[in-house]
Design a protein around this nucleic acid. Structure first.
Length: 255
DNA sequence: ATGGCTTGAGTGTCAAGA
């Protein structure tokens, strides 16, 4: 089973890339973030024609998350229970024998800002919910745009980013709380090239210069981590015309 | 120099992303 995550930065703009990528890679499930549309603008028909069912928790202009799957997803859930939030950042469903949690975690803007406080509260609420979910779903994967670079090796210039948004200690502590729940960073289960990133700024030719951050992740419960055979970042779509600023991350699990 | 692109909204120009 192949599962993946991709922040597409507007599904309307990126639909051709997504369809091409689905045909090339043929994942069993793909989690999308930043669809930036309501259901009425969501390309259900085009995805169906490509062989994928789609679940969408949409929002106009900002946020919006979706799960695409080749088989029928069940037990669909949207948003964090008990966390009042108009922002659409969570959708979860079971595909095959795997519980998928697709998350677009807040950016936080700047350390100390209101948005940063919201980010930390949001991350705490997600961790509390996952703690309850994991016993119910021992084969659980948390996939998405975490907006956290968990370690210095996930940052092109750790000195410049030290203490900054996406790299601050409270954010990294929040990431470690997920790990402490038993979730493993699938990418780090394997040897990886140095300076592996999943996001590059649109400006300053950052992609060509590999000035990036690894902020998109697939975290796996112990049972799924034991079944994980590969995890990689696919930089190919980032090289296309009008790309998303994020690259997809893929994990392969044995059946 | 706190910018540099890209998107969505909406039709001039700004918020937000990371």
């Amino acid at each position: 089973m192949k599962i993946a995550t991709w922040n597409v930065n507007s599904l309307k703009v990126r639909l051709p890339h997504v369809l091409e990528w689905l045909a090339d890679v043929q994942p069993d499930a793909l989690c999308l973030q930043e669809t930036k549309t309501e259901d009425k603008g969501f390309p259900f028909a085009a995805l169906e024609a490509a062989g994928y069912r789609a679940l969408h928790n949409g929002q106009k202009t900002y946020n919006g998350v979706a799960i695409l799957a080749r088989s029928e997803p069940v037990e669909v859930m949207c948003d964090l229970p008990g966390f009042e939030d108009p922002q659409k950042r969570i959708i979860a469903a079971t595909v095959g024998d795997v519980r998928l949690v697709c998350a677009y975690m807040p950016n936080g803007q700047a350390v100390g800002s209101d948005k940063y406080e919201y980010k930390l509260k949001w991350l705490a609420a997600l961790a509390a919910w996952l703690k309850e979910e994991l016993p119910r779903h021992p084969r659980l994967a948390l996939l998405g745009d975490f907006n956290i670079a968990p370690e210095d090796r996930d940052v092109h210039d750790p000195a410049a980013w030290q203490g900054q948004i996406l790299c601050s200690e409270p954010e990294r502590d929040a990431f470690r709380r997920f790990v402490d729940l038993g979730l493993a960073d699938a990418f780090r289960l394997f040897e990886q090239p140095e300076k592996s990133f999943s996001w590059w700024d649109y400006r300053m030719m950052a992609f060509r210069r590999n000035i990036g951050l690894r902020i998109d992740h697939i975290l796996l419960s112990p049972e799924l981590a034991g079944r994980c055979r590969t995890c990689s970042i696919d930089k190919a779509p980032r090289k296309l015309e009008r790309p998303s600023d994020h690259a997809p991350v893929i994990a392969e699990l044995t059946d």
